[in-house]
């Protein structure tokens, strides 16, 4: 089966400095991929580049190919004209944005905004349109009456449901959800994620889910890609990566998850700060913060196969077992 989405060598630069520096990934139809990594590593930029929605100050290169079901020719995102892209957006890929607060036009009724998106891609009579909108709102667990409301009249959770309804409006094959639950309380978060999971199964959607919350990602996704300073440093099945991470950064990220009942309580975060992707340190980008680094780390490692469908960008992978590290040693690494 050919992948639904294929990203090869995606680079995004600002004033010549890279923000995203060579991202490769593939996504099968119906698959859920998690995209994790510290703030500023380029997750949102990657997502927007996939829809060619970056602001004009950012330049993107690389090949992005989309093969939606029922479309004969693969869609080459990089080659399309802007007008051509407008037909691809929302019809094949849609977006649920970070935080629900500002993702809808505050001075337009919700129903009108849904209708606008549908009418852009399909011919529909007013009656059909109204029925579609009611159905969409019900799919995400809202009443049809919500269509007559303004965004500010809805709760954060309701608004995010409206966003999901909007994302489903044209029956796309891929939904990119960029931190869809950050602005919500824990109960709402769980509800929205369950909704996303349910819809994905029912509609056979592929999903790219971006989040800082590894727990959320593990629960919702099949595969996980971990980004560091503009690159994917590890990618593989969620189970495999969580059980046996193969990049020190992933290992430390997982270690920094608070473990309930653990006597350490909140585990230490990774010391030091990530470099800006535009000014990476020489050699391996993670070296200055890596407690496991060695001589080979002078050379920037390529990402390579380290297990079945499991890739990591570390010279020393696959790791048989991780050496014990003292917290102090990790601190030293961060200072380097």
């Amino acid at each position: 089966m050919s992948p639904l989405l294929e990203i090869e060598g995606l680079r995004v630069t600002h004033d010549g400095k890279p923000i995203v520096d060579g991202v490769d990934l593939t996504l099968e139809p119906g698959e859920a991929l998690a995209l994790a990594g510290e703030s500023g590593c380029g997750k949102t930029t990657t997502a927007l580049a996939t829809m060619r929605l970056l602001p004009p100050s950012l330049e993107q290169s690389g090949v992005i190919t989309l093969r939606p079901e029922g479309v004969a020719e693969p869609i080459n995102i990089g080659r399309r004209t802007e007008t051509g892209m407008r037909l691809v957006r929302w019809r094949h890929i849609s977006l649920v944005f970070q935080g629900a607060m500002n993702s809808l036009d505050p001075v337009q009724r919700v129903g009108r905004q849904l209708a606008e998106a549908i009418r852009l891609h399909e011919r529909a009579s007013s009656a059909e349109l109204a029925a579609r909108i009611a159905e969409l709102l019900e799919t995400v667990g809202l009443t049809a009456g919500v269509g007559d409301r303004y965004p500010h009249e809805l709760s954060g959770g309701q608004r995010q449901r409206v966003m999901i309804a909007l994302a489903l409006a044209c029956r796309p094959s891929l939904v990119i959800a960029d931190e869809p639950t950050t602005a919500l309380d824990v109960v709402m978060q769980a509800q929205v994620l369950q909704l996303l999971e349910r819809l994905r199964e029912e509609l056979g959607l592929a999903l790219i889910l971006i989040s800082h919350d590894l727990g959320v990602l593990a629960e919702t996704c099949d595969r996980i890609a971990v980004m560091y300073a503009g690159r994917i440093v590890e990618i593989g099945a969620v189970d495999g990566v969580f059980a046996a991470p193969q990049h020190p950064y992933t290992k430390l990220l997982l270690d920094s998850l608070p473990v309930i009942g653990d006597e350490r309580g909140l585990a230490a975060a990774i010391p030091g700060a990530p470099p800006h992707p535009g000014e990476p340190p020489p050699g391996c980008r993670f070296r200055p913060r890596c407690p496991f680094s060695g001589d080979r780390c002078d050379v920037d490692p390529d990402r390579r196969e380290v297990g079945p469908r499991h890739e990591a960008a570390c010279h020393y992978a696959p790791w048989e077992r991780w050496p014990e590290i003292e917290p102090a040693a990790a601190g030293e690494g961060g200072a380097a």
Partner: peptide, 14 residues
């Protein structure tokens, strides 16, 4: 700079 502008562009509006 508001998010809804990006979302509207994402829906395919010019």
């Amino acid at each position: 700079t508001e998010d809804f502008i990006t979302v509207k562009r994402a829906t395919g509006l010019s």
